[in-house]
């Protein structure tokens, strides 16, 4: 299996290259997709377009996918990330519309997202419902309550004039030439990576995700940790809700759900980067980047929108197949 067992003593045998490609399926796919679109279109490899990928495609999904990575790291899943996005967006728009300061509105939005997470936490750690079903229930209840709050699902628009500049700054502003949403994502990636890898809390979560019963017998307070993970997940998803709202100046009920499946996809694509198949923030980000580049590139090729969905689905399928085949080959 290893390079040293190679009887030919030649490094680059077809088998070896195959193994490397499988092991780093995500990176190979990223490079392949990047090269393909650079040649296939004249507009892909321009700085304007690459910036647009990061700002328009990458940011929001990246934030929601970080939230998802927390839940999956703890051995669960959070189907209600979109609900947190929506509730945060609703709270943000409502308070800004009512004339409260933007700072207070942001705080309220973050709290709303975290409350959705707290509801999940109570169901999962308190009642003992499995995360998939608990967050599925939350998703349904969130959907209904948003329709009730908005008279059957009417969008809430902000007026074009008279909004605080701070509000627009979150979605459209620049610091040192870098778009504010990107700075927020960058900070989030750094902070969450440190929390997961370098803190006692993060290691506890990873341990619980690997083998919950063992973590319990080693004296970890498992329910408390797991509950906190879902509150964090809701809190992080709320950040996406804030950025989304200040970018488009509107709250559309139940629009956050669109991120859920892609976030799951990105998180699990990311697990292929880890030797043990564990979720990790860098892997998740590569997954998000892959999905963003494909979405942007397919758009530029002028392919019909409908074929784009087929293409994206096929690509995810191939990456997953390659990485799971490889994991199986290593006997995991």
């Amino acid at each position: 299996m290893s390079v040293f067992a190679n009887p030919d003593r030649r490094l680059f045998t077809p088998q070896f290259i195959g193994q490397v490609l499988l092991r780093y399926a995500v990176i190979a796919a990223l490079a392949g997709v990047f090269a393909f679109f650079s040649f296939a279109t004249t507009t892909f490899l321009t700085s304007a377009n690459l910036t647009s990928i990061l700002v328009n495609n990458f940011t929001l999904l990246a934030i929601v996918a970080v939230a998802m990575t927390f839940a999956v790291s703890a051995g669960g899943i959070d189907l209600s990330v979109g609900t947190s996005v929506d509730f945060a967006s609703f709270a943000f728009v409502s308070l800004v519309l009512a004339g409260y300061p933007v700072g207070l509105a942001i705080l309220a939005a973050l709290v709303s997202g975290a409350l959705v997470g707290l509801f999940n936490a109570l169901l999962i750690s308190g009642v003992g419902i499995t995360p998939f079903l608990a967050t599925l229930g939350t998703l349904f209840i969130g959907r209904s309550s948003q329709q009730l709050l908005t008279n059957g699902g009417n969008p809430v628009y902000l007026p074009q004039t008279g909004i605080s500049p701070l509000f627009l700054f979150i979605g459209h502003g620049h610091i040192l030439g870098i778009p504010v949403p990107l700075i927020i994502v960058g900070l989030l990636i750094v902070i969450t990576s440190i929390v997961l890898l370098r803190t006692r809390f993060g290691r506890a979560i990873l341990a619980i995700g690997v083998q919950q019963s063992v973590a319990r017998y080693s004296g970890l307070r498992v329910p408390g940790h797991i509950g906190l993970v879902y509150v964090i997940s809701g809190f992080i998803a709320a950040i996406a809700g804030i950025i989304l709202t200040s970018t488009v100046s509107v709250y559309i009920p139940n629009s956050g759900g669109a991120f859920m499946l892609n976030a799951i996809g990105a998180t699990f694509i990311g697990t292929t980067l880890s030797r043990e198949g564990r979720p990790n923030i860098p892997g998740t980000m590569l997954g998000v980047l892959l999905l963003s580049i494909v979405a942007n590139g397919l758009l530029l090729t002028g392919l019909s929108f409908y074929w784009q969905q087929v293409g994206t689905g096929l690509l995810i399928f191939i990456v997953l197949a390659a990485s799971f085949l490889n994991r199986r080959g290593r006997g995991d």
């Binding site: 499946l261 969905q309 997953l320």
Partner: peptide
């Protein structure tokens, strides 16, 4: 050997497309 949740998720995208 893809986890069913992911495999059928990807297939769902392709089929919907």
């Amino acid at each position: 050997g893809i986890v069913p949740l992911l495999a059928t998720l990807a297939v769902m995208n392709v089929v919907a497309g």
